[in-house]
Design a protein around this nucleic acid. Sequence first.
DNA 1: GCCGTTTTCGGCCCGACTGTTTTCAGTCG
Length: 598
Amino acid sequence: MPSHNADIAAVFEEIANLLEIEGANPFRIRAYRNAVQAIGALSTEAYVLLENKEDLTELPGIGRDLAGKIEEIIATGHCALLDRLQTELPPAVTELLKVPGLGPKRVRHLYHDLDVQTVEQLYGAAREGRIRALSGFGEKTELNILQAIEAHTDQKGRFKLAVAAQYAEPLRAFLADVPGVKEAIVAGSYRRMRETVGDLDIVVTAASGSPVMERFTGYEEVAEILAAGSTRASVVLKCGLQVDLRVVADESYGAALHYFTGSKAHNVAVRYIAQKKGLKVNEYGVFRGKNRIAGETEESVYRAAGLSFIPPELRENRGEIDVARTRKLPRLVELCDLRGDLHTHTKATDGHNTLREMALAGKSHGLEYIAVTDHSRGLRVTRGLDPLRLKRQCDEIDALNEELEGITLLKGIEVDILEDGTLDLPDHVLAQLDLVVGAVHSKFELPRARQTERILRAMEHPHFTVLAHPNGRLIPQRPPYDIDMPRIIREAGRRGCFLELNAQPERLDLFDIYCQMAKEEGVLVSINSDAHSTFDFANLRFGIGQARRGWLEKQDVLNTRSLEELRILIARTMQRPNTCGPYKRQTKPQIRSGKNVR
DNA sequence: GCCGTTTTCGGCCCGACTGTTTTCAGTCG
């Protein structure tokens, strides 16, 4: 089995870590880290590119040397450089880099002088007071290491976006209320709508002398103050979430917001471009010499660099800068573009509300139609529907549609895709429905080839409409199942069916890079709440965030269509007659134009 | 180790805070 892109990226990541501890040229280390990012963003397996005789040096940040190493890893499963580095340094030593406060220099010191190789050994050395004796270390550093390890072991890691929001919004409001504060905004990965966030970055503009720092460190949710200067402070909340606050003057608002929204790779690329124009970009503004020429708004920062405004969700240095140069960035889909929701549940299975309650809640969220897609009989824990109960539900929907105004219920099912790729209900039953949403709910551990074939076979079913939560991951407890997603996307394009972007905060599935791929293949994506209660429609905003990260525009999203248009598209997919002509496939958008900017 | 409308060599983003130091190295974002 050839190495997958994730395996290659892991090798390069490990090489970068070990080189760093060895004290190698920092730019060489950065080259490996850039390669990790480049390979992670690839829409095709590198071994497939090689089979197709593609030139890997065309990839951003991949030159002759790294291309050779990729070939080596694919051919042999090994990388000689990594093997050599691991004879010089024990592999576990890179784990020490994860301890906050420890960087490569200190890790090297600890290994060479105290033979510390693992976090356990580090903890022991700190408790025995052996670290303070090293030059460059002291009592305080030793204590910080102890505390960091203790905090690390019971730390929950990254927070789901929706959970982070529960802490971020009240804290932002609290800071906005401090006298002298003009703007307060949560930046960082939260603003970029990443599916999980490691910490919160908050930018505040305030008049000098404002008590904002004092109020921040005194916030009642603060458990620990990590650092507190005059313009920047870091705390850990009781829930374990770290929050970094930055205070700047009004005229630096845009520059600071840009800086703290990131991503780091995006910022580096923007500063590099500015530098070529003789400019310097920092969190205070854009400068030519000592003159500030921009910085009061983010738009002004981009303008100074010769770029159009780049929405936060795109700022990952995945080609957005090249496109911003040409002023052809996509007009990203917005929450208000959604006209329907094609995946919801009711009390009939594992939902909490009635048909009527769900319909009214959907309407109150501005939706014009919602598909009722309760589970099928195979999913016994949810009391999934058999043909008889489904028929009864359909009758209820018909009756309700007669009565309701401003919202239409569609008759659907979330049918189980069985292990062999068949669907959990008979064809003649599925044929009666408005749409069929198919999903995998069992046998997550099938090998890649079988899992992929299972889904492809299901998609071939004439009544199959939408593939729900295609990767099956649950943040943080379940990784995605092992499938050939690029192939599934291509086949969905050929077959003419749709892919779901499930907006539940623990799913957010399709992932962003697959949204991009779906767009390239002309496959429409349906952003669905998978609501199990009336409250869950609010999750659609997280789905929109993920879709925007995947460069999706209104026309790339199935449920931005009117009900009439939707019915036409579904009719085509379900291979039923319709009188409104074929759906015209889009031309492929070119969203990855050439190399990324370094 | 990568890259090139100034370049195939010599660049490669920028600043705050802490702790250990007596002016700065290390880490972080």
